[in-house]
Design a protein around this nucleic acid. Structure first.
Lengths: 193, 193
DNA sequence: TCAATTATGAAATGATCGTTTCAAAAGTAA
DNA sequence: TTACTTTTGAAACGATCATTTCATAATTGA
């Protein structure tokens, strides 16, 4: 039987995520990753394949931590209205605590690579499908409960909310005023009622 | 008196814009720019300073072409409602015709560099100020004409619209369905009425 | 203890990075 | 034409890029 990895894979992914998030894919060098993870070059290649495949691992890891946060937030919601509000509160929290103005890594990556790298494009399409399905589900429930209006279909509102979150994250890169952002979210959500 | 530049500066900026827009700043090499512009390396450095300063020139050029389009669109508008609609139509047109899925270069650049490069951060702050001032002006007029409601201030709606445009451009990278996008814009603008 | 297998460390790979150098070419004003 | 100034072309700069190589260390099951 072989020798096993001595490093903590999750800890390494966290460190790598920090670097990729801060500098972007093209702005991050293998040396940056070696420095951040304290792993040897050959260990990185041996365990993660290449810079791109490691980045895809990082993206999935980043996404999964988001999904966990979402699940917790949604579990706490009593109705569709709270569920949507909780999602935006979570993004708001991310923006306020993002002192480096890095923005959302998924949004950044879509902007940087979706038109260049097929594997990233595919990731982003799946990400959009999942996000919109989740939003559509919540909106639909809200419409059934008569909390949200039915001027548009749940699917149409889901795309609107998906688009709004991306806008919010882009806006949050340079605008950290909590009151402005709260009001922005309030305006975004008003159309649902 | 010195010898003058033999190349067409605007044509060179256009070519450079294409490359930077497609590949992003970090994804673009000096060799890419040499190939695209058919200029010699030394001519580029002599006339544009460095990769970064050339990129800033490109950004300004890209922005100015947008401003020209905006001016034309706004001049044709009979009222605030049409003015806002025209702005979104212009972005819609950009999205539909963006076959390479490059997105908006200003949005991409903000995502890639605003947290890394002070000169870019400054550019983006000014860009936001100008965009919001323009939007606020239109919304305010619309409110005075009783076309838009006054549930929020013109400034608040301006930030909302600014954020929505960024979201629209991010969404438009992967979603080119014209009907979906038209509906998205309709939903975005509904809150104003 | 002994093979078998894999992770690891250090160095090197060729390619490409942004930038510089400098002589030659070219345009201008006198 | 002459003197001056700047652009241009080609080559080279050192640094860094992502990746590979390979000997060594480490860990396993037997």
């Amino acid at each position: 039987m072989p020798k096993e990895e001595t490093f903590n894979r999750i800890a390494v992914l966290q460190k790598a995520t920090e670097v990729f998030h801060k500098k972007g894919y093209n702005g991050t060098s293998m040396q940056d990753l070696v420095d951040a993870t304290s792993l040897n070059r050959s260990s990185i290649y041996n365990s993660f394949g290449s810079k791109l495949t490691m980045f895809l691992d990082v993206l999935s890891y980043y996404q999964s931590t988001y999904n966990d946060s979402f699940s917790k937030k949604l579990a706490k919601a009593y109705n569709a209205s709270e569920a949507i509000q909780n999602i935006f509160d979570l993004h708001m929290h991310e923006i306020i605590n993002d002192n480096d103005r890095k923005g959302c890594m998924v949004v950044n990556c879509k902007s940087e690579m979706a038109n260049q790298e097929p594997s990233i494009k595919s990731f982003m399409e799946k990400n959009q499908d999942r996000a919109i399905a989740m939003l559509e589900d919540i909106v639909y429930k809200g419409q059934m409960e008569k909390i949200f209006n039915q001027e548009q279909t749940a699917g149409q509102y889901a795309l609107y909310l998906f688009s709004s979150v991306q806008g919010l994250r882009m806006t949050g890169i340079l605008n950290k005023n909590e009151e402005d952002l709260k009001n922005l979210i309030k305006t975004i959500l008003k159309v649902l009622y």
